[in-house]
């Protein structure tokens, strides 16, 4: 008799402990379901409808998919996202690696350099956008200063107003803000590379370039993969700088998919179609994630 009452007591206590644990988790999970998971699941349905945000949605089957395939504004924006991806996998990666490698070789002033490199990353995108809008404005910025010195070849260059330059100019500003983050990320990883490897390389007479190529790069491979992954996913989501500087213009020359989703849903009032667009780009991001997952698993099993 006593043993059963004890185990009843034990079970009751365990149930109470679980309820307490649930109570601690509930606020976080409830808010998360409300804001992220719930809407994400519902957009899986809305993507296949003609939902206008107000009246009841009608299921339209493959209608949105067909429309997307023949929608030049979508392919224009998606093409820009891919240019963005290529730019960000090269320029800030190179700057980040060079900056971190040089920083790892100096003692004096290293922490000051690190702070200066990182400051643009801390500043809000709207401020950075404003800085470069005025610096690259032909009337007030670098061009005006050069004009005073008799150099006039920038006078009629509208970096953000010329449809041949706008996308690259906006990407330049985003990169100016972003590369310092990679320096800090890579520097931390380089600090974790076994110092005896560097010494061995030096004893073998390796110069700084061979040291970088054969010791540093392989040593921080996991962090490099992480950087490539966040850049790939981030390039599909890029929004702030194009929105704040050009709004996607002129004539769609710096348009990106997230700006287009935004316009389609809230200005064009076609949230059903916008959801399909968003689903397409999210699937692409999912493909990237799966690829990275397999690469990482291969690395680990090797």
């Amino acid at each position: 008799m006593t043993t059963t009452t004890l185990s009843d007591e034990g079970r009751r206590r365990r149930r109470k402990r679980r309820l307490v644990a649930l109570a601690f988790s509930t606020p976080a999970l409830a808010i998360n379901l409300l804001v992220i998971a719930g809407p994400a699941v519902s957009s899986l349905y809305y993507a296949w409808t003609d939902w206008d945000g107000f009246s009841a949605p009608n299921f339209t089957g493959l209608e949105n998919a067909k429309r997307l395939l023949g929608d030049p504004t979508f392919w224009n924006a998606l093409g820009h996202n891919f240019i963005w991806l290529v730019l960000f996998l090269t320029v800030p990666m190179a700057m980040g690696l060079v900056g971190a490698f040089m920083l790892s070789r100096v003692r004096r002033g290293a922490s000051l350099f690190r702070v200066v490199f990182f400051i643009p990353y801390v500043i809000a995108s709207v401020v950075n956008a404003q800085i470069w809008k005025s610096l690259l404005d032909p009337a007030t910025g670098i061009a005006a200063q050069l004009d005073k010195m008799g150099i006039t070849w920038l006078n009629d260059v509208y970096f953000f107003g010329d449809s041949n330059l706008s996308l690259y100019s906006v990407a330049f500003v985003d990169n100016w803000h972003f590369w310092g983050f990679l320096v800090v990320l890579f520097l931390a990883a380089m600090g974790g590379v076994d110092p005896s490897l560097f010494e061995a390389a030096r004893i073998d007479g390796a110069g700084p370039f061979r040291e970088f190529w054969h010791v540093t790069l392989p040593g921080i491979r996991a962090t490099l993969m992480f950087a490539i992954m966040i850049i790939s996913i981030g390039s599909l989501l890029a929004f702030d700088y194009a929105f704040a500087i050009t709004g996607g213009g002129p004539a769609g020359s710096s348009d990106l998919v997230s700006l287009l989703v935004n316009r389609t849903a809230f200005t064009g009032l076609e949230p059903g179609y916008a959801s399909f667009m968003a689903l397409a780009i999210s699937l692409l991001g999912g493909v990237f994630l799966v690829i990275f997952h397999y690469i990482r698993r291969n690395e680990e099993s090797r």
């Binding site: 988790s25 999970l29 998360n32 804001v35 992220i36 998971a37 719930g38 809407p39 994400a40 519902s42 957009s43 809305y46 945000g53 996913i233 599909l236 989501l237 998919v257 997230s258 989703v261 849903a265 809230f266 949230p271 916008a274 959801s275 667009m277 968003a278 689903l279 780009i281 999210s282 991001g285 994630l289």
Partner: peptide
């Protein structure tokens, strides 16, 4: 399960939920 859910949510792109969230 909860931990896996959190990992999935972190990698979920904003575009997946922002449109229905606005109307909600």
């Amino acid at each position: 399960g909860v931990e896996n859910y959190l990992f999935v949510v972190i990698s979920l792109p904003v575009q997946m939920f922002i449109v229905p969230l606005f109307f909600l």
